[in-house]
Simulated assay, not measured.
Amino acid sequence: MPSLSDFIRTHSGVLIDDWVAYALALNEGRSRLSEHDLRDSAPEILAALEANMCQSQTAQQAIDKSHGEKRASDEHFDRVCQLHAQDRLRQGFGLSDIVAEFRALRASVMRRWRASTDADALSIEEMERFHEAIDQVLSESVKEYVEQAERARNLFAGILAHDLRAPLGVIVNAATLIARTNDTHPELTKAAGFIQRSAASMNVLIDDLLVFARTRLGDELPLAASPQNMGEICREVAEEMGSVLDGKTIDVTTSGNLDGVWDRGRIAQLLANLLSNAARYGKGKIRLSAHEHEETIEINVENAGTPIPAEALPTIFDPLTRINAVTGHRDMAAGAGLGLYICRCITVAHQGSITAESDKARTKFTIRLPRRSDAGTLGPACQPPP
Rank of each mutant, 00 (worst) to 15 (best):
A133S: 15
N203E: 15
W113Q: 00
C81Y: 06
H162P: 06
H84P: 08
A166D: 07
R153S: 02
E101S: 03
D207T: 09
I206T: 05
D135K: 06
F77D: 03
Q196E: 08
A191I: 01
I171N: 11
E187N: 15
G94L: 04
Q86S: 15
L168E: 10
L164I: 02
T176K: 11
A121V: 11
S139I: 08
R90W: 06
L160V: 09
R197F: 06
D118I: 15
V172H: 11
R88C: 02
L83M: 07
R129E: 08
E101P: 02
R88S: 09
V146R: 03
R103P: 00
A199K: 00
R180P: 06
I124R: 04
A133P: 05
R106M: 09
R90F: 07
Q148S: 05
F212V: 06
D183N: 13
I134C: 12
E132M: 14
P186V: 07
N173L: 14
S198R: 11
S116H: 03
T181L: 06
R197G: 04
N203Q: 15
F156S: 10
R106G: 00
A166G: 04
R90P: 08
L164H: 12
E144F: 01
W113C: 03
T189W: 03
P186I: 08
V137F: 07
L138T: 08
Q196H: 04
A100H: 09
R103V: 09
E150H: 09
L210I: 13
T117C: 14
L160G: 09
K143P: 03
D207E: 11
K190Q: 13
D135T: 06
F130A: 08
Q196T: 07
D207L: 07
V204I: 15
Y145F: 10
V137I: 12
T181V: 05
F130P: 04
P167M: 03
V211G: 05
A199H: 08
G158A: 00
Q86V: 06
D208Q: 00
H162C: 00
V146H: 00
S96P: 03
V80T: 04
L122G: 15
A199S: 12
S141M: 07
L160W: 02
